[in-house]
Design a protein around this nucleic acid. Structure first.
Lengths: 116, 116
DNA sequence: GCAAACGTCCAATGATTCTTGAACAATCAT
DNA sequence: ATGATTGTTCAAGAATCATTGGACGTTTGC
């Protein structure tokens, strides 16, 4: 694998890039998992996209400042840059994660209360 | 002008559509102005894009659930659907608006502490 | 060195998005 | 009805994004 990739600093984060990154369901899912389960290798997310495509999505998350990628052996460990995001855009990531959780339980809201 | 356009209900709002809508600087600027100055006519935002292009951006905001468009005479009045957004995705719009305000004051952060 | 495991980089393709201009529609004033 | 105002709709082009396959680089193990 190539060298360690570039990571922007918090004061370089662009709101447009962050929102674009989070607007994609695959990328949002990855961010969600990282927030729940902590650091993980790229291959953990192999089910969400092909190898190449996953690399593309991870690069977008990285360039937006949302994730950090750290080489370890022949793997690359992914982690959420929650604190950096919080420093730059307070409350934003938290709100998006909460909204994503909330949306999952969207199906069926008003209708047929029935008995169950 | 055609009939009154379609507006989705809060339980139909999609997080991806909302984040996509807010990821564009022009659309975010419009949302920002609406949040600060209340209801306004489309033409108020004529400086941000051409007539046709503006109509396109406003349609995206509308379909995402972010704005309501109401015909009044020969104008169309725009307003932010803040409460509907808050009901569907609590804290999200507030966080984005705060982030947008914050970003504006980004230029020059760490450098030349000097004496002032 | 050679092969397998894990990912990245590049070029190409298909799908969306953004932007524009021309034509159309509704309202207001004369 | 005529014309000006205010926006929408349609078709088309430019730009960007998403996805894929093939080649390549790095680490691990024989």
């Amino acid at each position: 694998m190539p060298k360690s990739p570039r990571h922007p600093q918090p004061n370089q984060f662009a709101l447009s890039a962050v929102l674009e990154a989070l607007s994609d369901p695959i990328r949002r899912k990855i961010v969600q998992q990282l927030s729940q389960q902590g650091e993980r290798s790229c291959s953990t997310f192999g089910a969400y996209a092909s190898k190449t495509n996953l690399s593309y999505h991870l690069a977008r998350l990285r360039l937006a400042g949302l994730v950090r990628i750290r080489p370890e052996g022949r793997r690359r460990m992914l982690s959420l840059r929650y604190d950096d995001m919080e420093a730059r855009f307070p409350g934003l990531l938290r709100a998006v994660l909460a909204s994503a959780r909330n949306e999952r339980s969207k199906i069926k809201t008003s209708e047929a209360p029935g008995r169950g």
